[in-house]
Design a protein around this nucleic acid. Sequence first.
DNA 1: CTGACTGCAAACGTTTTGCACGGTA
DNA 2: TACCGTGCAAAACGTTTGCAGTCAG
Lengths: 134, 134
Amino acid sequence: MNYITLLKDNNLKATPQRLSIVEELYLHGHMNVDQLYKSLLIKFPSISLATIYKNINAMLDICFLAEVKLPNAKSVYELTKEEHSHVLCSKCGDVIDITLDLSKLCEQAKEKSNYILKDSAIVFNGICPKCNNS
Amino acid sequence: MNYITLLKDNNLKATPQRLSIVEELYLHGHMNVDQLYKSLLIKFPSISLATIYKNINAMLDICFLAEVKLPNAKSVYELTKEEHSHVLCSKCGDVIDITLDLSKLCEQAKEKSNYILKDSAIVFNGICPKCNNS
DNA sequence: CTGACTGCAAACGTTTTGCACGGTA
DNA sequence: TACCGTGCAAAACGTTTGCAGTCAG
């Protein structure tokens, strides 16, 4: 796995617990603290919540992970990738990534705000196809 | 003030403390819990944080207020108004409203996600003109 | 072998709750 | 007058910290 080198370059050791967090996020895309904790408990019955928090924070610090703040829901974490937006299902809580063309939007925002814009956080709220069919 | 009727219609009494919260938000636009607490302490030296929380939650419940979750900052609250987006200054923490044309963006999001979209939360991050000049 | 990581327990900051009193309608 | 709201104190909750033992490099 390439991730190991990336971690080591940032003085983070590739412990089984840490790698499992990365793996879970790789498999599930977005997870909150509790979901991560419960998943890791299966492999590591004596893992502590503190370990989860320390690892998340360490990997946030080196921008290996990113936090996604959601309306009416706990923050979820994801592996850092190219810039993208999120869509949250307000029924089942599922979160997906979408890539949007933001050029026009940023232009508008720059004009109307007079701020020097760095980045944006965009979350859409709705109902996913699964929930809509049941 | 028109707000009083709006509150009463939702079985919320127009107490001085509650009205002060509304007034502060009206004047300042966006405030977090601590800022509200410190502001109200001037008028009500014995006000409790619990009162602030209870009032915010009561007014959130009736959608009289809205919460804005910000990256790397505490949530702020605002009086509910037409849909709009936010721009946060990562230096001074100031938050402003901007109205954007989201039609194109929503179309894209609908296509790419297959979700039934309800609304969106958009926060830009940058440096405000004031901070940029100093 | 050394420094970083884990897991536990305690500490911490934030938010919520229960209750008696006071104020709005 | 009836009920909602306030303020206080305590409780609950999520997150962080300190420490001793353990493990990765």
